[in-house]
Computed example of a mutant assay.
Amino acid sequence: MADSRGGSGLAQRLNWLRAGVLGANDGIVSTAAVVVGVAGATTLTGPILTAGMAAVVGGAISMALGEYVSVSSQRDSERSLVEIERQALTDDPDGELADLARAYEARGISPRTARQVAEELTARDPLEAQLRAKHNLDLDDVVSPWHAAVASAVAFTIGAVLPMLAILLPPEPVRVPVTFAATLVALALTGTIASWIGGGSTLRAAARVVLGGGLALAATFLIGSLIGTTGLV
């Protein structure tokens, strides 16, 4: 069981890492698209900074809220399963033991061995045994929605720092090209890391996010440039 718990903990950490990478990726793309779009309409630093900060704050809050709602729903479902199993153990412990043995039989264990495993695990912690075997749920892995929300907001903000610096620090004539280059390089990196975590094709994943990010930047810059030529800003 120690190995199982260790594997579960590792999977949980990898999921958090992947979520962090994707959150940073969102921060890079959305913030870069906003500041590049505004830079297409005006060369003034004030409007670019204002729009960029609004994108960072609004995006981080939106990411945190979405993650909070999602994880809260997941946690409510997990808590419901825990209560159902706890009540079932109180009402019919023998039936739950038989269900646990059948769950191990379904995995290819012989009936005699499955019964012995079920009895030993039930003797140690009946609720944990039921949750692990029947729902693949570990009470130690129930995620806090507040932790998820904060982590998502932090990851988004970290990702957003790069395009903000890229658009504000260089001289005005090269702001947009520098932001394009920095953003696409960062997206290639986050795509590579995400594919490594997920075990997919590194080149394909990096190409997808770079292409998508490039299209987003090109679209917002074009729209900003068109608005700028109309004299609206």
Rank of each mutant, 00 (worst) to 15 (best):
Arg79Cys: 03
Leu131Arg: 04
Val57Glu: 10
Ala60Gly: 02
Leu81Glu: 12
Arg86Tyr: 02
Ala103Gly: 12
Gly66Ala: 10
Ala55Cys: 09
Ile109Thr: 13
Thr45Pro: 01
Leu127Tyr: 03
Ala51Lys: 06
Arg112Ile: 09
Arg115Thr: 12
Ala64Ser: 13
Pro93Tyr: 10
Ala88Cys: 05
Pro126Glu: 14
Glu119Val: 08
Gly46Cys: 04
Arg115Cys: 03
Gly52His: 04
Glu105His: 03
Glu120Gln: 15
Asp76Phe: 00
Glu96His: 04
Leu44Tyr: 05
Gly46Glu: 15
Gly58Asn: 11
Asp76Tyr: 01
Ser80Ala: 15
Ala60Arg: 06
Val56Cys: 06
Gly59Cys: 07
Ala123Tyr: 01
Arg107Ser: 11
Val35Glu: 05
Glu67Trp: 01
Asp76Glu: 13
Thr45Phe: 08
Glu128Lys: 09
Ser72Val: 02
Gly58Gln: 10
Gly95Lys: 13
Glu85Ser: 08
Val69Ala: 14
Pro111Gln: 12
Asp76Val: 01
Arg107Lys: 15
Gly95Pro: 06
Leu49Met: 14
Met63Tyr: 00
Ala106Phe: 06
Thr50Gln: 14
Gly40Arg: 06
Tyr104Gln: 06
Val38Met: 08
Thr42Ala: 07
Ser77Val: 05
Leu97His: 11
Arg86Val: 03
Ser62Leu: 08
Tyr104His: 14
Gly37Ile: 04
Gln87Leu: 11
Pro126Arg: 15
Ser72Trp: 02
Leu44Trp: 04
Ile84Arg: 15
Ala32Tyr: 01
Val69Glu: 12
Pro93Asp: 14
Met53Pro: 00
Leu100Trp: 01
Leu81Pro: 00
Glu119Ser: 10
Ala106Glu: 14
Arg124His: 05
Gly59Met: 05
Ala54Lys: 10
Leu65Gln: 07
Glu120Pro: 00
Ala51Trp: 06
Asp76Ile: 03
Ser70Phe: 07
Gln116His: 11
Gly59Asp: 11
Asp92Leu: 08
Thr50Cys: 07
Ala33Thr: 12
Gln116Thr: 10
Val34Lys: 02
Asp92Ile: 01
